[in-house]
């Protein structure tokens, strides 16, 4: 490409953020092998997230969760034609470089894996491949965007099958954006300090009423109605992790969650696709999770 087309620029902010724009209204599914990836693509997923264990199993097995085996990622890339994302540990610059070299389409610097750095995230603007990062509130989202994230997902609490944290986080981010929009200009400076985010990004959000990047949601979505709820609350799309492949009938549930995301504003459709799905994944009550086992608190 570069020899015969010298003025073409790769890795620009528009190209990275634009990739996320193309995923809007869609479902991104966690998969652990080529067969699951094909099920996801057949169901209408807009992308798959390649990882070694779904969050529910990471919780169960314990230990350190790391970037997936490159062979496994290659297998998934070969199996489907839709975009393939993969997770790197927070702050693990080299895992991210390896994933970029493997040709993944998006990197998730993810709290679901065990953090590699407890103070610093990856400088994502240094990469050609775009990054998505989790956030529980607006300040965290803007810090990640300042580091170069081209897409944000609200964190929720992965691997629980419980949507309550996903709702809390998207409501928090949306609420904080609405509040910024109504603040007098002179108050934006101290608000930037409160949010621990750069003033320029705070002022931009206040002016436009939205994040400068696409906002998906994740962490605990297990049913078609859960996915539709997240769209109702203003998410641009959803990530579904353990919710599909830890359920009784993944093929049917995957398709149902895609249909509910497209038709979130039509309860007749959401109701119809919710029938006969078999068992949903067993959920975990967040109140019973010790603080050390909550992933949403990882990342700073």
């Amino acid at each position: 490409m570069s020899q015969d087309n010298p003025a073409a620029q790769t890795g620009t902010s528009r190209v990275k953020r634009g990739m996320a724009e193309m995923l809007k209204g869609g479902v991104i599914m966690d998969v652990i092998d080529a067969e699951q990836a094909r099920i996801a693509e057949d169901a209408g997923a807009v992308a798959v997230m390649a990882l070694e264990r779904v969050p529910a199993d990471i919780r169960k097995d314990g230990g350190v969760a790391r970037m997936s085996d490159p062979d496994m990622i290659d297998g998934i890339i070969a199996a489907v034609s839709i975009p393939v994302m993969a997770k790197a540990r927070i702050g693990h610059i080299v895992e991210a470089k390896v994933l970029q070299a493997l040709g993944v389409d998006y990197i998730d610097e993810s709290e679901v894996l065990t953090p590699a750095d407890e103070s610093h995230h990856i400088t994502k603007s240094d990469f050609i491949v775009p990054f998505v990062c989790g956030a529980t509130n607006l300040g965290e989202a803007l810090r990640r965007i300042n580091e170069g994230a081209a897409m944000i997902r609200s964190k929720g609490e992965a691997g629980t099958g419980n949507v309550v944290e996903a709702v809390r986080h998207i409501r928090t981010i949306k609420g904080e954006i609405a509040r910024l929009r109504n603040l007098p200009k002179e108050e934006l400076f101290s608000e930037a300090k409160n949010l621990q985010a750069p003033y320029e990004l705070v002022a931009e959000v206040a002016a436009t009423g939205q994040l400068p990047v696409v906002l998906f949601t994740a962490g605990g979505i297990a049913t078609p109605a859960d996915a539709a709820l997240m769209m109702e609350l203003g998410a641009d799309g959803v990530f579904v992790g353990s919710g599909i492949f830890k359920s009784g009938d993944p093929v049917k549930r995957a398709k149902a969650i895609v249909d509910a995301t497209t038709n979130w504003d039509n309860p007749d459709v959401v109701g119809k696709v919710s029938r006969g799905l078999g068992e949903a994944m067993v959920g975990i009550n967040i109140d019973t999770l010790p603080a050390s086992e909550r992933y949403a608190g990882r990342g700073w």
């Binding site: 087309n5 003025a7 073409a8 890795g11 620009t12 190209v15 990739m19 975009p83 389409d105 998006y106």
Partner: peptide, 15 residues
């Protein structure tokens, strides 16, 4: 031809 330029790292902008 779908995805004719390659993967996302090959995505680009040009006047």
């Amino acid at each position: 031809r779908r995805n004719a330029f390659g993967r996302q790292v090959d995505s680009f902008e040009k006047e």
